[in-house]
Every structure is written in structure tokens, then in C-alpha cells.
Amino acid sequence: MLFKKLLSSIGIGAATVDTKLAKAQYVQGETVEGIVDIRGGSIEQHIDEIYLALVTTYLREIDDKKHEEKAVLARYKVSGSLTIGPNETKTIPFQFALPYDVPVTLGSSRVWLQTGLDIKMALDPQDRDHLAIEPHPLVAAFLEAARQLGFRLHHVQCEQAPRYWQRRLPFVQEFEFKPASGPFKGCLDELEAIFFLSENSVEVLLEIDRKARGLSGLFAEALDMDETFVRFTYGTGDIPALPQLLADAIQKYS
């Protein structure tokens, strides 16, 4: 029995966990529902806690090199202490609301749920389930407005943010657009957007990268003086006018 307990404590013949989601695709802020299935190993085990961690990755610059870091967006307690017998199965339902700042899974951005059993003196069994995160309707409206103005979504990436941009998390998700057609083709090199989303509104930080013109333009570009930051906020009622609002903001600073 002692030998079995030792094997169980190092993860051999121990309890296993499997999280099953009602669906794999969600919108920012949406409620996630599912169940956690636990199957006992070869010996009775006491579990202190069952938890779900919502995890993503972002790029952090260290000594001029970019490194991928993990970030826990939220942690959810599914169950308190319980005992699982040999080969016993338990099913525990759960639900939680995704945070509004969960990254959209476009480009290189990935989001997953990591399930763990907190067992004293044991390697925690873990289970990883990837989620597809769609933009919130307010963010989707901006992407559509940009498309109508001739911008093409070129790149999406989570990167470490300067302190003055940071909110709850150490990073922001950047959406980079290129003018492929329309009134801003030839005027801008690119347009970058960062969204600070809440339930009923979104604050947008725009970085407008003007196209260099002549020697003075090239000089400004070399010193990053060609970039202008613009902030504006909009809500659901502003969506019909959003293409014009975006066009006016870009026109003013380009």
C-alpha cells in the first residue's frame, strides 16, 4: 500500500481529469459552460481543489529579443476538496464568463483552458482545451468599418504593453491594418488598433503611421515622428456611423 501511495504521489496510477466544453467557439465576454470528468487511479486520493486557468501567450522584449511568455487571464474554482476512490468517476459542471480582455484568436494569438487537480505531494494532472475566441460585436464592427474604408487586416499579435497602456494585464493585443484600396491607399503605411473593451463600449487606441513624403517625410519616419496616436470611444448606438467616425479620425491626423 505504501508503494502504491508513493507511485500515486508522483503521478503513476493517479487520478486523471478531462474537461469537456459545451462548444469550442466563443465571443469575448460570453459565458463558457462545460463539465470536468475526474477518474480515480489505482488508489484513493484526496483532492484539495479543482481549478480552471484561462491562459494565453504574449511577446515580451528582453535585451532586444522577443520571448514568448504565458499569462493567466483568469482562474476559476470548479470544486473544493473531495475524495476520489480507485477507478471512481465524478462529473462536475461549471460555468463562467470570459473576461472582455481575452484576446481574439486571430493571427498568432492562442487561448486555452488548463484544468488541474490540486493534490498534496503529487504532480497535478492537467488537461488543456483550446478555445476559439471571436471578436465582441463592438470590435467586429470596427473591423468591418476598416474593411469598408479599404483596410486589410494584416497582422494580429499580443505584445507586452508600456505601463501607461496597461490595464489589468501586462500586454495588449494589436491589430495591424494595411490600406489596400480606398481613400487612404498611398497616404498611410499602416493603421494599428488596440481595443479596451467593456460591456457596452470600447475605447480604441489608434496608431496612424503616415506614409513618408520627400526628405522631410523620410527624416520623420526615421525618427518615428510619422506616427500619431488617437483615442476615441464608441458604443452600440455608434456602430452605423462608425465607418465615418473612423475615416474622420484618420483624415484629421494623416
Rank of each mutant, 00 (worst) to 15 (best):
R168P: 00
A15Y: 06
E203L: 06
T105S: 08
D101R: 05
L59C: 07
V156G: 10
K70M: 12
Q148W: 11
A146P: 03
A193F: 00
A97L: 05
D127I: 08
R168I: 03
Y234L: 00
K23A: 08
P183A: 11
L206Y: 11
D226P: 00
L123I: 15
N200T: 09
L131M: 15
F232K: 02
R168H: 09
D64V: 07
E174P: 01
R231D: 08
L246T: 01
G107Y: 06
D48P: 03
T56C: 12
A97K: 09
F171M: 06
A122C: 14
C158R: 04
E221A: 14
P179V: 02
G41K: 00
D118M: 09
T19W: 00
E44F: 12
Y51G: 02
L117W: 10
L98P: 01
Y76V: 12
D248F: 02
D189Q: 13
Q157L: 12
I133E: 00
L206S: 13
A220V: 02
L6A: 15
L169P: 03
F195Y: 06
V111K: 01
L117S: 07
R60Q: 06
E88D: 14
L54A: 05
A71D: 06
G80K: 12
W112S: 11
S81M: 10
V72K: 15
D101I: 06
E203F: 01
L169S: 07
I250W: 02
V17E: 04
S254R: 05
K185T: 07
R147M: 07
A24W: 12
V36P: 00
G150Y: 02
E227G: 04
D118N: 14
L215E: 11
D118L: 10
Y253M: 05
A14P: 10
S108C: 09
A53T: 15
G34P: 12
T89G: 14
L218C: 04
S198K: 08
L106C: 04
R210Y: 03
Q157H: 14
A222W: 14
H46F: 12
Q114D: 14
V17K: 01
Y100C: 01
S216E: 03
E88T: 04
D238T: 01
W165S: 06
A140F: 03
K4D: 13
R152G: 11
K77A: 08
R231Q: 08
